[in-house]
Design a protein around this nucleic acid. Structure first.
Lengths: 122, 122, 122, 122
DNA sequence: GTGGTCTAGACCACA
DNA sequence: GTGGTCTAGACCACG
């Protein structure tokens, strides 16, 4: 669980952590039931404040990606929401598709990229 | 140019305005050379402060989507950067693909959605 | 006297006109005593408002680069201020030198460029 | 970081602030990684509004000279764009060279001045 | 009438 | 405590 954080980015650090964990789960680098590093450990490794990691975990928990174990640890959830694509996700995707189109990325290229990212190939 | 703004969202208003204009250009509701509403007009219509619209326009200008004409008015640029998909865009897309996958959206569904959004069908 | 104007630039149009005339005089494409196009003519050719050309000419006159003829025309002045480099010019040059240095332009390159521009070679 | 501002100048205050910071970086009075004053502090010291300083910083950030650190504070960037002299910079330099020539500054004097400014000697 | 700039406040997210 | 965002005004330069 090496976090690559960009402190100069406009994306909040807790969001970057959240995103990378979501990516890790989707690409099956983290499997359901796998243990996630303790807050203190992750904070030390990443060189950030514990509050920041705590916020990321709280967000992931609220979204249903992870859950607290009875013993104290935190693990990847066994089941995720099957709610399909939310409205928020669709709007975010729409903006990206627009930007890609205006950047002269062809539909074929774009589709291919979407597929590769979905399958975790890149 | 009716803006649909969500004042409760965590995405800044100026970003929402920026996104909707990018979408409008990509879906050809706004064509190169078309005039976009004056800052004050848009501010009045959207019920936000002039400076907020100003910031959105400044961002769009910096990104090359629009340009001020110096004789009054702001227009959609004739040419956009043909730089292809930037690294930032890819990372944003990766997170969305991950979330879709974990929301039990099949690859086929996801690809179909990407295509529709790219073509501006929905 | 073909003006190349960029209406999308942040430099005011009257300044662009003024700059190009100064450049033309310095590179001896316009010689002392040469007649400068009438305001109306220049405005038509450049596709701008007469007031804009008028403002450019007024600025050039105030700076001593051109002067009105008794008959009504406007000509390049015979003598320019021998005042040396003003403080304002030096500060503008300082900023450019700083930007060049930070853009990794070597001192040699920079000096060479300054010389070529001074001699009007490029 | 004392700003010398000319409130009567036609160059915007935020530009003056931007220019002086660029000069400070180029002359190594500010080194990569150095912290620059907080927006509010600089605003107080300079006697201007926070938003004005904010705009200057935003510009510098966009140009890659500084970056916000997300843990409080803004620092001088470690690496600058090595893009060489842009077209805009050349045109600005051309006008200055023309003005210098017409002010009867000899090529030798001009070159010497350019060198000194580049090296930060004056 | 347009965008550009500036002020004097305020609230919030982030770390 | 930091930067980010937003408001409600105002004046000015430009064309």
């Amino acid at each position: 669980m090496l976090m690559k954080l960009d402190f100069g980015s406009d994306v909040p650090i807790y969001q970057q952590i959240r995103n990378q964990i979501v990516n890790a789960i989707a690409s099956e680098k983290l499997l359901p039931g796998d243990k996630i590093p303790a807050i203190r450990v992750m904070a030390d490794e990443a060189g950030v404040n514990m509050m920041t990691v705590n916020k990321a975990y709280a967000l992931l928990k609220q979204e249903g990606y992870i859950k607290s174990e009875r013993r104290g640890g935190t693990v990847v959830a066994e089941e995720f929401g099957k709610g399909g694509l939310g409205e928020g996700l669709r709007e975010r995707l729409r903006v990206i598709a627009s930007e890609a189109r205006l950047a002269a990325v062809s539909e074929e290229e774009f589709i291919k990229l979407c597929g590769k990212l979905y399958r975790g190939e890149i």
